[in-house]
């Protein structure tokens, strides 16, 4: 179990702390904005406001990242790819209010005995949340170490009693172009959709997260619930899920539909299979440091001992 040094935001009530920071930031924004005529980088926006997240408790914390330092919460929640909330890394935090999570439900269906529509609290037992610290490797060759809160995906899925026809699981993100203005762009087909082979989904490392850093997920990280697949590129960890379907055929996935020669169905982290337009051999840990060197990317993002057996006999340069 990991303990971190006490930071000032653990002592000061978060709302007070945030307000103080906001005043300072506003002052800085005015000064800076008038000087160079641009707005404050969203990366400098603080951790999500207490109004949109609430504290969660976990039954315990397990470190799956080899004791590495956690990526600061501020960076985890301000450097995001979530195209529904905008294309730039800072956009999702800036446009967090585009995502409406009130009355959220998830429709579960397909090849299972107990389909239905569920509130998040009915899918995930908030009294039995685990904290898991995983590495997260984006296909764009950057990475983070994130303390997630959630439940093992397999345990959650088994409750719906998938049948023998359930060879794959498909997940959809919410579709709401009226509010999620990013969905008016044609960069991807909407809703964002992802999929896993059933044995991947049932693997003990597969995780359904509802929180990070001891709080519920902020919008930009995929509120109210998202997948976390630590050995796959980040885009497999689909955010803001509204639909889960057990299917017999390999489902379409958003990035694969967009550029099939660049993004495969499996998308396992693999330093020896380059993206056609950039190398995957190394990655940059997001730390806000202008002189940070890249580190070597590990096969299956360092989870090879646990997951390599899922892909025995497969040519991973073809099934990338």
């Amino acid at each position: 179990m990991m303990r971190k040094a006490i930071s000032s935001n653990e002592i000061t009530p978060e709302s007070v702390f945030l307000k103080r920071r906001q005043v300072l930031q506003a002052a800085m924004a005015l000064g800076a904005g008038s000087l160079v005529g641009c707005s404050v980088d969203s990366a400098e926006a603080d951790t999500p406001s207490a109004a949109t997240t609430r504290a969660l408790t976990s039954t315990g914390s397990t470190d799956f990242a080899g004791g590495e330092n956690w990526t600061p919460e501020k960076l985890v929640t301000s450097y995001n790819n979530f195209y529904e909330l905008g294309l730039d890394k800072g956009d999702p935090a800036k446009n967090a209010d585009w995502l409406k999570t009130d009355g959220w439900t998830v429709e579960v269906g397909g090849a299972c005995a107990k389909p239905g529509t569920f509130a998040v609290e009915d899918l995930v037992n908030f009294n039995a949340l685990e904290e898991r610290v995983y590495r997260l490797r984006c296909v764009e060759a950057w990475s983070m170490v994130v303390p997630w809160l959630g439940v093992p995906l397999g345990d959650m899925l088994k409750r719906f009693e998938p049948t023998s026809n359930a060879k794959y699981v498909r997940f959809d993100t919410v579709l709401d172009p009226d509010n999620l203005k990013g969905q008016r762009s044609s960069i991807l087909q909407w809703p964002y959709t992802e999929g896993l082979r059933i044995d991947e989904a049932m693997h003990p490392l597969s995780f359904m997260a509802v929180g990070l850093y001891g709080k519920t997920l902020p919008a930009q990280n995929g509120a109210p619930l998202r997948l976390v697949m630590p050995w796959k590129y980040g885009y497999k960890s689909i955010k803001s899920i509204v639909k889960i379907e057990f299917v017999e055929e390999q489902p379409d996935t958003s990035w694969n539909l967009s550029a099939p020669h660049e993004y495969g169905f499996y998308s396992n982290v693999n330093p020896s299979v380059s993206h056609p337009r950039w190398s995957q051999a190394r990655e940059r840990r997001i730390d806000g440091n202008v002189l940070s060197a890249k580190i070597d990317t590990q096969m299956f993002n360092g989870y090879a001992d646990e997951v390599a057996s899922l892909y025995t006999g497969m040519d991973l340069s073809k099934s990338f």
Binding site: V40, A43, E44, L75, K89, W142, R284, I286, N289, V290
Partner: peptide, 8 residues
């Protein structure tokens, strides 16, 4: 400041 999570 103002360089974001990935200053480079």
């Amino acid at each position: 400041t103002r360089l974001g999570g990935n200053p480079i």
